[in-house]
Write a protein that binds this DNA or RNA. Structure first.
Length: 586
RNA sequence: GGAACAUUGGUCUAAGGGUUAUGAUGCCACUCUGUCACAGUGGUGAAACGAGUUCGACUCUCGUAUGUUCCGCCA
């Protein structure tokens, strides 16, 4: 070792020791007669001190050539500081330097390597290896390491076995676009990178592995967002001889373990709600339930408190639904206009917004007073359970569409009122997802989760009757703070049911055989009942870190266009390579 | 595939159809023996690319590139 200690290590108890430290020069403070150097490594910062009269002239000369980010080794004696610094753990001591070796000089970095850097996202991504020297970024990767470590601990204790599955696999038409890799040895043929190890983990169940997991890279060639990367990591799990309840308990346990070990937080009860309830009450399949504002209906299949009063907007809508915002009756006209503009933005697409104030003096004032009597409004207020000082926001329109719009408004209000503190966590399951959803464009049914998801036994009858929309699946998502962190299902393990599913999804026998014949075959050799789930590892880390962006938790992430601006990929390849692969670009 | 916004010294940024283009920080030089975001003095250094409007464009318009965010998409 070139060093005897790290830069985060020395304390008063080390005084008078001869030590050698290595690291990067954070800053040189040359006061003329004396020079201070902050030496940094991943463990911390230790101050080096040199004095005009006491330090060897040659050493002083060397030190005067140092600048930021030089890599040096410094030898000397640990002494107690005259002026202590209580902001850093090593602040009681300093190293009285007797010798300094420049291990490597450094060009000036394009931005400051400090907790609060002056660099923008762009330049920091280009020099990611420099950005990674900064504490906050490094802390995110340490957090990621912790999450991975405690995941492995937990699953290992539960007898799970980590098995690697291939990365060069086969393209499938369903779902996201595949990244493809040409096969040189098989001209004109391509591998695909896995969107997930789905079929392999099911085959491992057939093999009798019983409890499998893998922290594994997955690849999807779709457009990106702040919380999406073309390559991302899953905690992929599968179990045999279990029911849905066993899965929920097992992985609730995992998340509880992670919160306890990584964050020191007890997450309390992990509640459950059905997909139908989530959609009706929150307009989302991943509701943020840290705050109330549940939807209340003024008009739907079950109720009608709005029709026949001459307000055409409500009369023409099949659904009128709203939220009650506590204590916001005093919102100004300007604030109301902002909210109206918010819901009218093209991304949300509402036509307008109706509001009603429940004033502190007990009066009700709405933007539709012209059409509705005091009595009508009172009835609304009762429906919402509103109290004096509350504000009620109402949207109208078409069923699930208007609920999705109201969901956006609800989240916006949650943000405005500071009800979505990233350090408050609420973990819950959404269960009973529909098995199939209808795709208008292709005029056919699609698997909502994936084609191997099993229907609920009591709903299998609808497979025969063709009422596909009624079929609920043994599928579940885990939601934390309105973010879907994981999901899975109990799988189909009988060949006949799987064949029926492929039929419903519009696969011909041939296609099914071509795409998934190996799985169908496997199911004939004794497939156990099984199911599992996968967690989005990057998202989980970003939640633990209290950030919306998963990029901060990936060492070398890609940008919005799927580019790595540091290594400049993707890039063109030599004609020679193309020839070898028998590939022509168009 | 679509939309919005952005692009000014190394970095972050200000104003404004006519300026010597603002400030901070960095960097360089000098001073400084208890600094730790050291301080002080002085210095250095800038309009993404292309076209147009105009007497005149860093400023307005269009296009291109790049980036960010969103919609579509992501079983």
């Amino acid at each position: 070792m070139l060093r005897t200690h790290t830069n985060g290590e020395l304390r008063l108890t080390d005084i008078n020791k001869e030590v050698t430290l290595c690291g990067w020069v954070q800053v040189v403070r040359d006061k003329g007669g004396m020079i201070y150097i902050d030496l940094r490594d991943r463990y911390g910062i230790t101050q080096l001190i040199l004095e005009e009269s006491k330090t060897d002239k040659a050493v002083l000369d060397t030190v005067r050539t140092l600048s930021r980010e030089f890599v040096i080794a410094a030898t000397g004696t640990v002494i107690e500081r005259l002026a202590k610094n209580d902001k850093i753990p090593t602040g009681d001591v300093e190293l009285k330097v007797s010798n300094v070796t420049i291990l490597n000089p450094a060009k000036l970095p394009p931005f400051l390597i400090e907790d609060k850097t002056d660099g923008g996202d762009d330049i920091r991504m280009k020099y990611r290896y420099l950005d990674l020297r900064r504490n906050p970024v490094r802390a995110n990767l340490v957090l990621r390491h912790q999450v991975a470590k405690f995941t492995r601990n937990y699953l290992d204790n539960q007898d799970f076995i980590e098995v690697e599955t291939p990365v060069l696999i086969k393209s499938t038409p369903e779902g996201a676009r595949d990244f493809v890799v040409p096969s040189r040895m098989n001209p004109g043929e391509f591998y695909a990178l896995p969107q997930s190890p789905q079929t392999f983990k099911q085959l491992l169940m057939v093999s009798g592995f019983d409890r499998y997991y893998q922290i594994v890279k997955c690849f999807r060639d779709e457009d990106l967002r702040a919380d999406r990367q073309p390559e991302f990591t899953q905690i992929d799990c599968e179990m045999s001889f279990i029911e849905q309840e066993d899965i929920l308990n097992m992985f609730e346990g995992l998340i509880r373990h992670l919160f306890t070990e990584v964050k020191g937080i007890d997450i309390g009860e992990v509640s459950r709600m059905t997909y139908a309830h989530a959609m009706k009450t929150y307009g989302s399949d991943k509701p943020d339930i840290r705050f109330g504002m549940e939807f209340k209906e003024l008009k739907s299949e079950d109720i009608d408190l709005t029709s026949g009063k001459g307000f055409a907007v409500f009369d023409d809508a099949n659904t009128v639904v709203g939220i009650c915002v506590k204590g916001c009756a005093e919102y100004t006209r300007k604030q109301m206009d902002e909210l109206t503009d918010f819901v009218k933005r093209p991304q949300i697409g509402a036509k307008g917004m109706i509001y009603m104030r429940y004033n502190a003096d007990g009066t009700l004032k709405s933007s539709v007073d012209k059409f509705y009597s005091e009595e009508d409004l009172k009835q609304w207020a009762t429906t919402f359970g509103a109290e004096k000082g509350d504000l009620i926001l109402i949207l109208s329109g078409d069923g699930d569409k208007v609920r999705k719009q109201l969901n956006e408004l609800r989240l916006e209000m949650g943000n405005r009122l500071g009800l979505r503190n990233p350090n408050n966590y609420s973990v819950h399951w959404v269960v009973d997802f529909p098995l199939l959803e209808y795709g208008e464009e292709d005029d056919r049914w699609f698997a909502m989760h994936h084609p191997f998801t099993s229907p609920k036994p009591e709903d299998i009858q609808y497979l025969a009757s063709g009422e596909y929309g009624k079929i609920r699946a043994n599928a579940y998502d885990m939601v934390i703070n309105g973010v879907e962190v994981g999901g899975g299902s109990i799988r189909i393990f009988q060949k006949e049911l799987q064949a029926k599913m492929f039929e419903v999804l519009g696969f011909s026998d041939e296609e099914a055989k071509h795409q998934f014949g190996f799985l169908m075959d496997a199911f004939e050799f004794g497939a156990p009942p099984h199911g599992g789930l996968a967690f989005g590892f990057d998202r989980l880390c970003s939640l633990f870190g209290g950030s919306d962006s998963i990029r901060d938790f990936i060492a070398f992430p890609k940008n919005n266009s799927g580019r790595d601006v540091m290594i400049d990929s993707p890039s063109t390849i030599d004609q020679k390579q193309l020839n070898e692969l028998k590939i022509k670009t168009v």
